[in-house]
């Protein structure tokens, strides 16, 4: 029997048994708060049209996650959808939609546990949509609604949302006593690439909707979240954008010493049938043992972390330039 599990990003749906009770409950509390706020925000502007719309949108995200494309060596790229949902539906509706998607996956297909559902909803539903909305939407307006701006913002927020979800997942596992030395680098590494797929699909999907039914994005925003669209970009949201990016960069860099606290940590990562060390080789060769040669201690690890991030950002930037070039050729 085939399961949707095989089609979804491996490692983001935490099953039961892996989180300790305090960790699982703590994230349940956060999720209940976030979803509660979303219910109130959506309910405050409740237009009865939203209910079937959000239900169908949850089904849409679920099905969209099944659309995949071959990348390399039998792996495939597909969508998580949080950032896309946020950009299309507005933050609070997207939180509800994504929460329902993740809950359905757990309840219908055992993708992710029930006790771990709070953490899973938070990672894949709350964090991703909030990044999409509170980093992506203001950034988009900052760039003046240009087409290349859309490409850049769509890609960046989608990528960021996947990496953030992976980092949160890692954090919860580490707080539950799993070895940070393994969990962080493995999760981060895999999702740096999964995030690229997410970014590309998100950009193309946004582009398609804006070309074929531009009215939908504004219509939807108008009755899902009139406030966001009409409000001019204020200093707070600019701060939000830059702050979000900065915090993320610093956070990831600071986490990296944790990641390599154990000298032979990386080698133990296991995935598929065997050890993943083969897959990790390239990263290793670039920054052996996650530290810089000739330097010792946490400082070197932090520098290595920042360098790693810069490399990734460089790659992302290059890819967006490439996309932008193609778009202009077509235009």
């Amino acid at each position: 029997m085939m399961s949707t599990h095989l089609l979804l990003p491996l490692g983001l749906h935490i099953p039961d048994g892996f989180l300790t009770v305090p960790v699982a409950l703590a994230w349940w509390v956060l999720t209940v708060i976030a979803v509660g706020v979303a219910v109130r925000k959506v309910g405050a502007s409740l237009n009865e049209r939203q209910i079937p719309l959000m239900g169908v949108m949850a089904a849409f995200i679920f099905a969209a996650q099944m659309l995949n494309f071959p990348v390399l060596g039998g792996t495939s790229g597909h969508l998580l959808g949080g950032a896309l949902a946020a950009l299309l539906l507005g933050p609070w509706a997207a939180v509800l939609v994504m929460a329902c998607v993740v809950a359905l996956q757990a309840l219908l297909f055992q993708d992710g546990g029930l006790l771990a559902l709070g953490a899973n909803i938070f990672n894949m539903g709350v964090a991703t949509t909030l990044i999409g909305a509170f980093v992506g939407a203001p950034l988009l307006r900052l760039l003046g609604g240009q087409r290349w701006g859309l490409v850049l913002v769509g890609f960046a927020t989608a990528w960021l949302s996947v990496v953030a979800a992976a980092l949160l997942t890692s954090m919860q596992l580490v707080l539950s006593g799993l070895s940070a030395a393994v969990v962080f680098p493995a999760m981060l590494f895999v999702h740096l690439f999964i995030g690229v797929g997410e970014g590309l699909i998100t950009v193309a999907a946004l582009g398609f909707v804006l070309t074929t039914r531009p009215d939908l994005v504004t219509t939807m925003a108008s009755y899902l979240n009139p406030a966001t669209l009409q409000r001019p970009l204020n200093r707070r949201s600019i701060l939000g954008v830059t702050g979000g990016g900065l915090m993320f960069a610093v956070g990831a860099a600071l986490l990296s010493p944790l990641a390599s606290g154990d000298p032979d940590g990386l080698e133990r990562v296991a995935e598929d049938q065997g050890f993943i060390d083969r897959a990790l080789d390239p990263f290793f060769n670039l920054l052996p043992d996650y530290t810089l040669p000739g330097l010792d201690g946490p400082i070197s690890t932090i520098i290595a972390g920042v360098l790693g991030l810069l490399i990734v950002f460089g790659l992302v930037y290059g890819l967006t330039l490439l996309l932008r070039g193609r778009n202009q050729e077509r235009a």
Partner: peptide, 19 residues
């Protein structure tokens, strides 16, 4: 990139139809 674009357009189509 091209393959991802194709999937993205499928996602977009699915979105419009769902809407």
């Amino acid at each position: 990139v091209w393959r991802a674009r194709v999937v993205g357009q499928m996602v977009g189509t699915l979105f419009v139809r769902s809407y």
